[in-house]
Each structure stands twice: as C-alpha cells, then as structure tokens.
Design a protein around this nucleic acid. Structure first.
Lengths: 145, 145
DNA sequence: CTAATCTCTCTAGCAACTATAGGTTCAAGG
DNA sequence: CCTTGAACCTATAGTTGCTAGAGAGATTAG
C-alpha cells in the first residue's frame, strides 16, 4: 500500500494532481488509513502511469477518460482506441504545421530588424500591419508560455 | 467612431474579447456614447489589430503588453522588441521539436495497431508502459484540444 | 516524546478567453 | 410615433489542467 506521496513519486505525478484526478473521476477514490489518508495499490499506480503517459503524448483528459474506459473492456475491438490516437496524431500534426508557419514569419520579422530605433523596427511594424506578412496565419493560436 | 461590434468586425476580434482586453488594461477605456456604449477611433483599431496579429503569432498577452509599451516610445532602440520576438521564436521552435517527438511516437503506436481486440491493442499497451517507447518525452505537454 | 514531514480539506489562482443572465440602447420599419 | 429586434451594457461563472496557499491533523524518525 502506497501513500499518496509515494504514489506520486512512483508515477512522477505531483500529489495535488493525483487528488485532482480523483476529484474529476479519472482515478477511483482509494481506501483510507485509520487516519483518513489515502492508500493505493498496484492497480492505482498502473492507472496513474497510464494517465501520465497519455498526458505526455498530449492527449486531453477527456480522451484519456475514454481510453481508460476502453482498457477496462479488453475483449472489445480496439478500433475506438485507434481512432482516439489517430485524432490525437492529426491534432499534433496540425499544430506542427501551424507552428512552422509562425516560425517562418517570426524568422522573417526578426531578419528584417536592423536594430535601429522603434520607429523603423520591423518587428513592431509587421505586428501592426498584417499585410506585411508573407504567410497566412489568421487562425488564433494558443499561447506559447 | 466605431461601436464595439464594428471594431470587432474590423479587427476580427470578438466583442467579449475586446472588453476583456480593456479590463486587463491592454486597451484603454474608450469614450462612451450618451447611452453609455463604447465608441472607438482609428487608434483603437490599430492597437487592437496589433494585438490580434501578435496573438496569431503566439505571443502571450504579457509579451504583447511589453511590445505595445515599446511601440508607444518610437525613439528608443528596438533591441527590446527584437529580444521579445527572439524569445517567441525559440519558444515556437521548442514546441515544434516537442511535437515532432510526439508525432513520431503516435505514428509508431498507431502503426503497430493490428485492429484486434483491446487486449492486444498497442495503443493501450504503449500508453500503459512507458518502457515501450522509442523516444524520450517525459516533459509534460500542454493539451492539444 | 517531540519535531519534522506528510497528509487532509477547501479555496483561490493561472492564461485567455467564452458563455450566460438580465437588463438598456439604438436603428429601422410600419 | 412606436415597436421590434439587434446590438450593447455589467457582472458572474465556466473552460482546461493543473498549482499554490491556509490551517489542521497524521505519521514517522530519532
């Protein structure tokens, strides 16, 4: 039996994240010690590792929820799991394409910067006037924090 | 003088988003009509277009805030603007590299899927066991919603 | 036995919006 | 002139996937 801290260490998931997963129903509520602390078995570790790994591959939690419920029914066709993975793959590819366009535009913008004053800064100018752009990039994009 | 709706249309930014930008101080509070509705001039349109465009290029709002305050001082060196753009470029490149690793892993995972039952589904199996992975991808990644 | 380290619950915050509710104003048609 | 419907107003809550904090209780090492 693992405490939440040990579980977190084993699966490389932070403790509050585990509690969060339980809260949103991705992990079942585990048994508790006499002092009300969570105690986990091997199956919880497997499940958490699965979640972690899927997150690393960029699957959204809702997709992971679906994958988990699939893996609970091992006799069914894996077409659904395959479909989820394919969706994820095409999402990843779309993001790569999008980011490459951004990369090109940023490179162009920076390449034109002669390090003068703001008044002739191409960076500022390009941002202020979309028509100066070489590529199309009018779909909003998520932050690159 | 533009109403918020016209402004939004002209800059391709949704109305609630404009109000949000005002709320967080990215756009100045505009004058109001006798009936308390916002009225914008050309400068607001320029500023909003700038923000929109920078968002398209993936700049986080905080970076845009910096760029805007730079563009308000046209006599200064543009080194700071250049630095912001370069930071953004390297963030974009890092994300591309990361996504390519994910793409490769997903391709591998899907390629192994023989469309049998869940019990021998490589997708599920690979997700459950990180050691089956070809590539390293242990840094958490943002969702691909 | 005590001190340090977990762990507990609950709440609030992050980015960057989006949506909803419930009300007001405006522009155009009859 | 009046009404209808679209656009506008404020304020609040929700989204995703966590992270951080407060204040209290549990456990374990020495």
């Amino acid at each position: 039996m693992l405490t939440i801290g040990k579980l977190g260490q084993s699966a490389a998931v932070k403790v509050p994240t585990i509690r969060y997963y339980e809260q949103i129903g991705l992990l079942p509520a585990p048994e508790r010690s006499s002092g009300n602390q969570r105690l986990y078995g091997k199956s919880a570790l497997d499940r958490l590792a699965f979640i972690r790994h899927a997150r690393e591959l960029g699957f959204p939690l809702e997709a992971i929820r679906d994958l988990l419920s699939l893996s609970d029914r091992p006799d069914q066709s894996c077409a659904a799991a395959d479909a989820i993975a394919r969706r994820q793959l095409s999402a990843v590819r779309a993001r790569i394409a999008r980011l490459k366009a951004l990369e090109a535009e940023l490179e162009r913008m920076i390449g034109q910067c002669a390090q003068g004053t703001i008044a002739d800064c191409r960076v500022i100018e390009v941002l202020g006037d979309h028509t100066l752009c070489a590529t199309d990039h009018d779909v909003p994009v998520e932050s690159a924090a």
